[in-house]
């Protein structure tokens, strides 16, 4: 089965606000695709359009080549976590999952399976209204997994999770991708996707700013830069600046040098008689790479 998600030229306005402006990308199976961008970049709207909740003004979103609205048992094709607090508080988690399962022709056995899978266990028989934010996320993820779908969309799944929960969900995302599913995960915090996402779609102002493999992106962001550790930070900055380098302070005893190679940096520091502890090629974090990319497209409101 074709499990790609194709988003093609989506445009959407809410009154005077342009939420989407030619949003185009596709999600491929077998890896986690991070969908990042500042608040208001159009991530949630795009996801809502993919699952047929909102209609785009223009463009289309196809799942496995067809429009979501034409799917017979849609939850067996696409599972989505859009709003973790979308449940009736007085209903138990199990009953919440039960009606959802029944609407897809699935039985209570499948409900018990996903309850176990997300680790809700006996808490599933309690009213969902009393759940912590973390448990709500688990319930929302259980709902997404219910139909065992080949395509999964998660909108901000890390919100409200404790560190243990974050570790758990990263593992879950990796294993879902390893099964060959298409997994799209939105986040406004890049650090959350570190070591999880294999591919990154960066959105800004309703369109795609970058659509790259994560390895590629980090290499570009790191490109040519050198990390320097020294206790004589002031002296080092002066010497390097004189040699034409751009220096950024990244810590109490660490600097990032751009414009000079590692060897040139060592030569300049040696000539100026500045002591240093370490010179190494810089490896950008995902967050740095992201900040670089979205610098111009951040919309302040």
């Amino acid at each position: 089965m074709d499990v790609t998600v194709e988003v093609n030229g989506l445009r959407k306005r809410f009154g005077a606000t342009r939420a989407l402006d030619d949003m185009t990308f596709s999600v491929k199976p077998g890896l986690v695709t991070g969908f990042v961008g500042p608040n208001g970049a159009g991530k949630s709207t795009t996801m809502r359009i993919i699952v047929g909740l909102d209609r785009p003004d223009e463009g289309s979103a196809l799942v496995g080549g067809v429009a979501y609205r034409t799917l017979k048992r849609p939850l067996t094709h696409v599972g989505a976590l859009l709003d973790a607090s979308a449940f009736q508080p007085s209903r138990t988690a199990r009953n919440h999952l039960l009606w959802l399962a029944q609407s897809q022709g699935l039985g209570p056995r499948r409900v018990d399976e996903v309850v176990e899978q997300v680790g809700l266990g006996t808490a599933a028989r309690r009213r969902a209204g009393g759940y912590s934010l973390g448990m709500r996320q688990r319930l929302g993820i259980a709902a997404a997994l219910l139909g065992d779908p080949p395509v999964l969309l998660f909108d901000e799944p890390f919100n409200g999770l404790d560190p243990e929960g974050i570790v758990w969900i990263r593992g879950l995302l990796r294993s879902l991708a390893a099964d060959g599913r298409s997994v799209l995960v939105s986040s406004h915090l890049m650090s959350e996707l570190q070591d999880v996402a294999g591919h990154l779609i960066v959105a800004g102002r309703g369109r795609v700013v970058a659509d790259r493999a994560v390895e590629d992106l980090i290499a570009t962001a790191s490109n040519g830069r050198v990390t320097l550790r020294t206790t004589a930070r002031e002296d080092a900055m002066e010497a390097l600046a004189r040699a034409g380098a751009t220096v950024t302070v990244t810590g109490a005893d660490s600097l990032t040098v751009a414009g000079l190679s590692g060897a040139e940096t060592v030569a300049v520091l040696t000539a100026a008689e500045v002591a240093f502890a370490e010179v190494s090629a810089h490896r950008a974090t995902l967050e740095e790479a992201y900040m670089e990319l979205t610098r111009e497209s951040v919309e302040f409101r």
Partner: peptide, 18 residues
């Protein structure tokens, strides 16, 4: 209306896009 108030309508309609 309870579904609208809780946002549950999104889950309902995503499950039944017709």
């Amino acid at each position: 209306t309870a579904e609208y108030r809780r946002g549950l309508i999104k889950a309902t309609l995503a499950a039944n896009p017709g």
